[in-house]
Design a protein around this nucleic acid. Sequence first.
DNA 1: TATATTCGCAACCTAAAAGTTGCGTAATTA
DNA 2: TAATTACGCAACTTTTAGGTTGCGAATATA
Lengths: 106, 106
Amino acid sequence: MKQDIFQAISDPTRRAILTLIAIQALTPNAMAEKFEMSRQGVSKHIKVLQECELIRPEQSGREIYYHFNPKKMQELDNWIAQFRKNWETQFNQLDQVLSTLKKTEK
Amino acid sequence: MKQDIFQAISDPTRRAILTLIAIQALTPNAMAEKFEMSRQGVSKHIKVLQECELIRPEQSGREIYYHFNPKKMQELDNWIAQFRKNWETQFNQLDQVLSTLKKTEK
DNA sequence: TATATTCGCAACCTAAAAGTTGCGTAATTA
DNA sequence: TAATTACGCAACTTTTAGGTTGCGAATATA
């Protein structure tokens, strides 16, 4: 089951995990303490985040610190890039012109 | 059922719809022709996108043109902003330092 | 060595999401 | 006015996701 970054960030708990470890790497137990959820529940979210490489494990004895992977988040940033032109004013005005033309040609 | 923008873009078909109408407003039928899916299937995706205001309807006779709403997509852009510092080199180096300190204090 | 701790994996349950078919309504066209 | 077209809504089915409990493996501690 290869996970997808869009699917990964669709869950509120997973977004909270990302926000936490973007500041500092944490173990599953440390994360679980932040949420009203069993450790195993958190562990499943970790698995999803790890499969799509948004986080990466660093073993330290019997503990595992999960680190945030900014590179993967940049992929999302790249996807949004296609819409940036839509919120630049001059292109919104162009959209207006196109709409008007469409109505005229009928 | 109030929809969430993260949930909305988690589906590949909905992302494809957004990509299409970011360029030009389309009717449900026009969208359905692009996908191997029933019109009603597409219509359900439209409903999700509309509920979270990523798209907006414009009635024209018996047709409805759906327009992309860039403002809402900017909310996603704002969410990503919290991670931008993570992919700037100097902060990655700081992360390295923090990791080293953590190991030392044990 | 015995015990406790950290964690991943598998099985299971329940809720929600994706997709279908069928139908009713409103606007267009013959 | 009758037929067609565009669409949303409701009901239904199947798949997937989120969550739990229970277990075993590996590391740390007494």
